[in-house]
Design a protein around this nucleic acid. Structure first.
Length: 164
DNA sequence: GCCAACGTTGGC
DNA sequence: GCCAACGTTGGC
């Protein structure tokens, strides 16, 4: 039996890379992660076949906009070796790369953005990291039940009081 | 643009 | 190893 999937939330600023960009590209390297906790999660816990919510930060509104799947893990992030890149890390080497990335593939774009404010209103999402104040981790683990709830929420009309 | 929250750096 | 200073994130 295959192992159970893990679920994630990946943050991106849509002005640099959006769900529309991912839909157009189909697949992309999730480069530029420069936080040790996020890196360790990708390195230790992320597996091919996992699913991830795509989250637009610094957007109006900020929120979850779609789903991607993890295709390949533990790829040395090429931007760390590129002096022209804003993600260049002079302390990293090709022999011992400090930063890794994963490649992800487009799964779906939600019909609507599920705003952060809406996530915070849902009692079912209590404890979901992204709803916590000051939580800036760009790669977050997500409980399966939270992942599925957000996906369901995206299919509902926002202000339909009767569906609660 | 503000600023709270948080991660990283570096002096000691 | 502590912790102040600094830089960044990201909602608002």
């Amino acid at each position: 039996m295959p192992k159970a999937k893990n679920y994630w939330l990946l943050k991106t600023e849509p002005t640099s890379y959006s769900i529309d960009d991912l839909e157009r590209d189909g697949r992309t390297g999730w480069d530029g992660v420069r936080n040790y906790q996020a890196r360790n999660l990708m390195r230790d816990d992320m597996r091919a076949g996992d699913l991830a919510l795509i989250y637009h930060s610094s957007a109006d509104p900020a929120g979850v906009v779609g789903v991607a799947t993890i295709v390949e893990t533990a790829i040395p992030d090429p931007t760390q070796f590129d002096p022209e890149s804003k993600y260049f890390d002079e302390k990293s080497s090709r022999e011992d790369p400090r930063w890794i990335m994963v490649s992800i593939a487009f799964v779906e774009k939600f019909k609507r953005t599920v705003a952060l404010s809406e996530l915070k209103e849902q009692a079912e999402l209590d404890g979901m990291l992204v709803t916590k104040r000051g939580q800036r981790l760009s790669v977050q683990p997500v409980d399966k039940k939270h992942f599925e709830f957000v996906r369901k929420l995206a299919r509902k009309k926002k202000s339909s009081a009767a569906t609660a």
